[in-house]
């Protein structure tokens, strides 16, 4: 079997080398007809395959929206599952066009690793979960606690910083995955479990007795999560950025997947008309797409609020409140620059 596959790869490689010109990412994606989107191998609510093998989740929705904008079909996505170690190499080497894998926007990732973050689709922060029976109501009272912590992540460093600043001691229990953490925490190997607050909520939702566990109010770090692309192709970065902006703006203007067809016939709001392609101005043409690109992106999975509600919102088992991720008009941080 190997030989035949080998020859296949060899010929494929030969033809691809010949055809590998310096095309833009947009041209490559359109020629390929499929968007290669990097996601995680499974994070509850953000990206996971359902029983039919379809990927679902908050990050997955971004991939689908971009595919809808660029390829006119939200299904034309090849989901490449990446791990914490392989995600950035896959993006840098061009194996994937876009990485939507709840990755934190940090200085070194943006500057040193040469990526462009296209925006922030989820404002997260590191929190603590403890058993209610401990009788602790603030992270400041955790002096001397044993803490389950995933190794090799920014959360590990944040934890050390936080305890140092507050002059407290802790004993780390290093663990590898979230699943292992759940087991260790439930078995009582540690007093507290710390990771991103969204992860804590998702984890708590799976317990047989969620009411006996609380997430402490302190958020000890900023974890702005967002989709990112490789540096060097500003057109492609703009497409991803403005697709995300379109989803946020759609929520602000009340465009939903239910009323989008009606609104796209033309409204009295010129900005909605520009977004949905019913105005004279051709915004999509400025970055190589057509007039209706953002209409398709919104129609793919609804606006930002709808995506949030369907995947991680309060009606789902994960049950996250909007919090920082509410629109700026409602006291949150989600804000889209104008479509003009």
């Amino acid at each position: 079997m190997k030989k035949t596959v080998f020859v296949g790869a060899l010929t494929a490689a030969a033809t691809l080398v010949a055809g590998a010109a310096s095309a833009t990412v947009l041209e490559e994606v359109q020629a390929r007809g499929v968007l290669n989107c990097g996601v995680s191998t499974g994070v509850n609510g953000f990206s996971a395959p359902d029983s039919a093998g379809e990927w679902q989740g908050f990050d997955v929705a971004i991939c689908r929206a971009v595919a809808a904008a660029v390829l006119k079909d939200p299904k034309k996505v090849k989901f490449v599952s990446t791990t914490g170690q392989t995600r950035f190499t896959a993006l840098a080497s061009g194996e994937i066009d876009l990485l939507a894998r709840n990755s934190t926007w940090t200085f070194s990732r943006d500057v040193d690793l040469k990526f462009t973050f296209a925006g922030i689709n989820y404002y997260d922060g590191q929190g603590f979960m403890i058993k209610k029976s401990m009788g602790v109501s603030s992270a400041k009272e955790l002096d001397g606690a044993t803490v389950c912590i995933q190794t090799g992540t920014t959360t590990e460093l944040n934890l050390a910083d936080y305890f140092k600043t507050n002059n407290m001691k802790y004993e780390p229990v290093p663990i590898e995955t979230n699943a292992e953490a759940q087991q260790q925490y439930l078995a009582g190997a540690c007093d507290a479990y710390t990771t991103d607050a969204s992860g804590l909520a998702a984890t708590r939702a799976t317990f047989a007795d969620p009411e006996n566990h609380i997430i402490l109010p302190e958020i000890i770090s900023k974890e702005p999560l967002g989709p990112l692309v490789a540096q060097g192709d500003d057109q492609w970065a703009d497409i991803v950025r403005w697709t995300l902006n379109a989803l946020v703006a759609a929520e602000e203007f009340g465009i939903t997947s239910a009323n989008i067809d009606e609104l796209s016939k033309g409204t009295t709001n010129p900005e909605i008309n520009r977004m949905l392609g019913s105005s004279e101005e051709d915004l999509g043409g400025m970055f190589g797409l057509d007039k209706e690109w953002s209409k398709r992106a919104i129609a793919a999975g609804g606006n930002y609020g709808e995506i949030f509600a369907a995947n991680i919102g309060e009606s789902t088992p994960i049950g996250l409140a909007r919090g920082l991720n509410a629109l700026w008009t409602q006291g949150g941080l989600q804000y889209s620059p104008p479509f003009r």
């Binding site: 499974g42 392989t86 699943a179």
Partner: peptide, 22 residues
């Protein structure tokens, strides 16, 4: 570890589904 979904990889993907988490 390199993101190929073998049985172990799939089991973590399955557990990432809200229905089967835990």
């Amino acid at each position: 570890f390199i993101g190929i979904l073998d049985p172990i990889g799939l089991s973590s993907a399955i557990r990432a589904d809200s229905n089967w988490n835990g």
